Amino acid sequence: MSRDEKVTELARLAAVAGEASAEAAYVIGHAEPTEPVPADLTAAAFFDVDNTMMMGASIFHFARGLAARKFFTNSDLARFALQQVRFRVAGKESQDGIRTSREQALSFVAGHTVRELNELGEEIYDELMADKIWPGTRALAQMHLDAGQRVWLVTATPVELATIIARRLGLTGALGTVAEHVNGVYTGRLVGEMLHGPAKAHAVRALAAREGLDLRRCTAYSDSANDVPMLSVVGTAVAVNPDSGLREIARRRGWEIRDFRTGRKAAKIGVPSVLGAGAVAGAVAVGLAYRKREHAS
């Protein structure tokens, strides 16, 4: 496959992933008990999870919990941690690297049931995630809820785990990576691509169409320069705990910056209120390179 063909295929998979994520979020959201109709029907907020809403990578915390339950070895976990570090330093992945991550992504759940992973997700959230929520970001989400707006998480983390996090935080729902399952059992394959980069933009647009949102009135929050395409599709983009790349872009474009890592006050640049717009949230591109634990023969 040529380089152009690879780029075209990745773009196709990103679109498939975005549509699948939006469909999953819509179905899950409408399957829950009916919530009060929001006062503001066309504005919403979208929050990245890793390093934006939560300290560290949610999928890595999940992996730690699964490793403790013998889903895979500690050496597998160490390799994944190294991949996370490399990704965060490099800021992007090669086309081959993304393909490899896609092929390995979520393979560790193959053969397990959706119900089992949901139950484990609830336990692991309590054990390893609940105390890692950034209070400042949580307060921003609550601000939107108090204004009568819906609030979604947008992340490369599996949609089941993302939905658990959203529910625990009292949010509307979540857009996340969709893992294929048949009769409630995971196949180990993804639907399209990881919800990463352009896929998140597709997901937010698709969900906005389903929910009747005006993207010009929505707000998005992210920490990563990888999410600029998604942050750019909404009316207001806010950089939260930004990496150096996003901080520079935010300054250049006049986006609001909020940094809760040092307690500094947000640098408000040309945006009077985050309630005025923006929808999408960038999620740091986690390379879900878990491997299913090999059992001794």
Rank of each mutant, 00 (worst) to 15 (best):
G287Y: 08
R264Q: 15
G192H: 00
G282F: 07
W255S: 09
S232L: 12
V185K: 01
G170A: 05
R205F: 11
D214E: 03
L190T: 00
N241L: 04
A285S: 13
A179S: 15
V204L: 07
A289I: 04
G184N: 01
G270T: 14
E193D: 15
A179R: 03
R253Q: 12
L190S: 01
D223W: 05
A179M: 09
R253N: 12
L246H: 07
H202L: 12
A220F: 09
L175G: 04
G270A: 15
A199S: 13
A206K: 00
L288R: 04
L175N: 05
G287L: 14
A283H: 11
L275Y: 03
E211C: 02
A285E: 14
R251T: 13
A289T: 07
A250V: 06
R291G: 15
P242Q: 07
G188I: 01
L207V: 06
A179P: 12
I165Y: 01
D243R: 00
G212N: 05
G188L: 03
V185D: 09
G212Q: 06
M230L: 11
G276H: 10
N241M: 04
S232Q: 07
L169I: 04
A237G: 04
P242V: 03
A225M: 13
A277V: 12
G197V: 03
Y186Q: 03
P229M: 03
L190W: 00
R261E: 08
G282A: 14
R247T: 08
G170V: 02
G276F: 05
V274P: 14
V280D: 07
A225R: 09
I165Q: 00
A220T: 04
K292P: 05
